[in-house]
């Protein structure tokens, strides 16, 4: 088990390197650098632009060195926890992201838990009552859920929310708790607000999971051991939970790996539409303003977190199913 974990972690090192290269490529990608955008902005406000000052600013931010030098300089900084400075916000990128990342993660984790909490019982129900009205209903809902873009669902919900309450943004807290220190009441207030974005983000994942769960369980229910257990007089409920359910859970657990990227995607879109103070609006703003240190860092952090999540899910999977330990 330990050697599996070690090998799996070692495999992550090159992957993380690729992530860092891509993130840096994103920082470098737009034509022109931030100074060009800055100059444009000054010109638009009809302010004087001193070329010498711009040149010295360029030097100060290290924008004049060759690409590979800047990459390694950037990588070295990151390893020391310094993600650079957001030129637009004039604040350290790490602080900007640290302020908002917990909310993104809270929404992702909540939608993740919600997706599994909904999908497992529904999948169980659909498989044991195959071709019943409930099964058809859930299948239909699942298909529509898969086909509905997250942001559209978010828009619909926001629309109802606006008509019902008159607020244009859902927010994460009620007004009275916005600046209040953490307390149990504040936490409960957060949960009251969190379920909505979580539901929006979780639909597509839930729909996919129901299908996986249902198909796996149906396969297992046809196995001879189920018949044997039944013929020995085991009660239906006990039989289901004790054997086929546990085996059917393995593939479901293995889907965690590919659920995570969809969760991140969904969280981005849902937060944008619902106006939540997560990383998403920060990221889009950074992209539109070519504040590339911020944008690249967001890509880097989101990807790294997803990879770590996948790693954890792989470890859980290996713990559940010993056969997987030898696979890598």
């Amino acid at each position: 088990m330990w050697s599996f974990i070690l090998r799996r972690i070692l495999l992550m090192v090159p992957t993380l390197m690729v992530v860092s290269v891509i993130s840096f490529a994103i920082i470098e990608a737009p034509p022109g650098d931030f100074m060009d955008a800055y100059v444009n902005q000054l010109l638009q406000q009809q302010e004087a632009v001193d070329p010498a000052e711009i040149e010295s600013l360029r030097k100060r931010y290290g924008l004049d060195a060759p690409t590979y030098v800047r990459y390694f300089r950037w990588l070295g900084n990151i390893l020391q926890g310094n993600l650079g400075r957001s030129l637009e916000w004039n604040q350290p990128v790490s602080k900007l992201i640290a302020d908002r990342l917990p909310w993104s993660m809270a929404i992702s984790v909540a939608s993740f838990l919600l997706a599994y909490a909904l999908a497992i019982p529904i999948g169980l129900y659909s498989a044991t009552r195959q071709y019943s009205i409930g099964d058809y209903l859930f299948t239909l809902i699942g298909f529509v859920g898969l086909a509905t873009p997250n942001f559209l669902l978010a828009l619909l919900i926001l629309w109802y929310y606006f008509v019902a309450t008159g607020n244009v943004a859902v927010g994460l807290f009620s007004d009275e708790y916005l600046v209040a220190p953490w307390s149990l009441a504040k936490f409960i207030d957060l949960l009251k607000h969190l379920w909505l974005p979580a539901l929006v983000v979780g639909t597509a994942g839930t729909a996919g999971l129901i299908r996986v769960m249902r198909a796996n369980l149906l396969d297992e229910l046809e196995r001879p051991y189920v018949m044997v257990a039944r013929s020995k007089g085991l009660s239906e409920g006990k039989l289901l939970v004790k054997y086929p359910f546990r085996i059917a859970m393995n593939p479901v657990a293995s889907t965690i790996g590919w659920t995570l990227p969809t969760l991140v995607n969904g969280e981005l879109l849902a937060s944008l539409v619902l106006g939540l103070p997560t990383v998403a609006p920060l990221f889009v703003g950074a992209l539109l303003n070519q504040d590339m240190f911020l944008a690249g860092s967001v890509v880097m952090i989101l990807s790294t977190l997803t990879l770590v999540g996948t790693l954890l899910s792989d470890i859980v999977l290996a713990w559940l199913d010993p056969r997987i330990r030898g696979a890598i």
Binding site: P14, I26, A29, L260, N265, A295
Partner: peptide, 25 residues
């Protein structure tokens, strides 16, 4: 296989967004 695994394990939307900003205006 490593490339495929990599592309499947990172969130696509931020990547798409960043790349589309890189298209010349």
């Amino acid at each position: 296989q490593r490339i495929i695994e990599f592309l499947r394990s990172i969130p696509t939307l931020p990547l798409w967004m960043a790349l589309s900003v890189a298209l010349p205006p």
